[in-house]
């Protein structure tokens, strides 16, 4: 039992890596989601085409394939990534593609009268987007973004397969060192679940905060 505390430290170290990866991946995913999501509703064909290709490609191939590709194939193209960089890149681009569809859907869900109001106020396309459409669309996106963040958290476990010492990796280390199987895997499952609960709780309180100024606007 005394030994177990040492192993618990190892698992907590893994938890830190998982959290770090989730945060960095989420930031990249968020950037990609807005770029591609707004690209899909762009006036210009080239932006629409690029965004569509990005989204279909990353949603169509599996996250594991993308991760392995980033880690094993890119070095042959002269781009060597550390496991952490490859992980953040693959996770961010993959989840970003899913979230881009959320952005697009949310932008399209804003009523037509809002666009007409923008025209009436003589706002430019970008101004209207920035001050009228996005603030309303953001609220629609939030709950699904929360789900996407949880999916991203769960997907981080695959980076253990490219030798990054995250939670899942440390569980395997503890298993091979102690031979005990239930303790490492159960504690890791519980930590993942706790992190997922924190994300969904955080998103929900953020949603409440953001809804505050929009009383009477939302339908």
């Amino acid at each position: 039992m005394t030994q177990w505390s040492g192993y618990l430290g190892l698992i907590l170290q893994g938890a830190l890596v998982t959290i770090e990866l989730t945060l960095m991946g989420s930031v990249l995913a968020l950037i990609m989601a807005f770029l591609a999501g707004m690209g899909r509703v762009s006036r210009f064909f080239i932006f629409r085409a690029l965004a569509t290709i990005y989204i279909e490609f990353f949603r169509g191939t599996s996250i594991f394939v993308q991760l392995f590709w980033a880690y094993f194939v890119l070095p042959f193209a002269g781009l060597s990534l550390t496991p952490l960089q490859a992980g953040v890149l693959a996770l961010g681009l993959n989840v970003g593609a899913y979230a881009a569809e959320v952005v697009r859907g949310a932008i399209l869900s804003v009523g037509r009268e809002q666009y007409e109001a923008c025209t009436a106020l003589n706002l430019g396309r970008w101004q209207g987007m920035r001050h009228v459409i996005l603030p309303q669309a953001l609220l629609v996106m939030l709950p699904t973004f929360g789900n996407n963040a949880i999916e991203l958290l769960k997907a981080t476990s695959v980076v253990s397969l490219i030798s990054l010492a995250d939670l899942t990796f440390q569980a395997q280390v503890v298993r091979s060192q102690t031979g005990s199987t239930l303790m490492p895997f159960l504690s890791v499952l519980i930590i993942y679940f706790a992190l997922a609960l924190i994300i969904s709780w955080g998103v929900r309180s953020l949603e409440r905060r953001m809804a505050r100024g929009l009383d009477g606007v939302r339908v």
Binding site: T156, S157, L167, T168, A171, Q172
Partner: peptide, 11 residues
Amino acid sequence: RGTPLLVQLYF
């Protein structure tokens, strides 16, 4: 639903 499939498979 809140935990990774990979860890469940290991389990």
